[in-house]
Design a protein around this nucleic acid. Sequence first.
DNA 1: TATTGTTATACTCTATAACTATA
DNA 2: TATAGTTATAGAGTATAACAATA
Lengths: 143, 143
Amino acid sequence: MAGQTRYEELARELSAIGAVKRDMGRILPQGCPVASAAVMTLLGRHGAMRMSGLAELLSVDMSVTSRHVAHLADRGWVERSPDPADRRSRILRLTTTGQEQLDELSRRTTRLLADRLSDWTDDEVSRLAQLMSRLRTSFGDGR
Amino acid sequence: MAGQTRYEELARELSAIGAVKRDMGRILPQGCPVASAAVMTLLGRHGAMRMSGLAELLSVDMSVTSRHVAHLADRGWVERSPDPADRRSRILRLTTTGQEQLDELSRRTTRLLADRLSDWTDDEVSRLAQLMSRLRTSFGDGR
DNA sequence: TATTGTTATACTCTATAACTATA
DNA sequence: TATAGTTATAGAGTATAACAATA
């Protein structure tokens, strides 16, 4: 349990982190907004899944997920196949082209971070990622 | 200089942190979107300033800043007075009502964080805020 | 009846460009 | 000419509600 000032500092940093996210978004290729990148990253990491599962991982309403996935399907980066076990559901998976696109995103993101964080140690990068992950968990559990 | 996997983890966390920001935004009072809260927080912390200075602190285009400030001025939370030193500029400052609103925002934010992060130590909260601040600096310097 | 997913609508946030007033 | 700020417009992201199809 931390003091009020520390919480206010953290709140301020949360509010300001958007600038970094926008910088990251600017290096993405045409036709691939940040939301598309997020979807492809999750499909690449977790493999095929249903809309509802993806919405859960994105922490976003399924209506939003549906729009993002439709965008990706239009571009041929994600395919939606019927779920044999439940015909209301659709199974999402990256296509070969989608995997190539994801690889390109990964290269660009890594290059940008390597450039900007050239004076960070491995441990500092990992520690930040770990604390941000825990922050998400601490919030997610309380919903 | 960290390995590729660490960068990918950090990129993933940056992409996912929006969920936490949205949770924070949901507890704000009516008529006070997150952008308004960010502006009032900066004016409360740094005191009166010009539009251009505020835009710089927000890392956002001045056109965006102008809209946010107009919203706050409409509600009587911020006043825009002419700058005697340069009549193109306007000096922004919190009004008494604006300060009260900021205090209320601060209370709500602190309460939410105290609830969600009840099992975090002071040091962990501070460490996360510090690393996020450094992340912003590392990106901001490269622009 | 309840759930999965889609679509329509509305709101917030942001950037670019055109404009004004002043330096 | 250049700069400070405003406004118009467009695009991305999200949530709510209404809907269709299936469980």
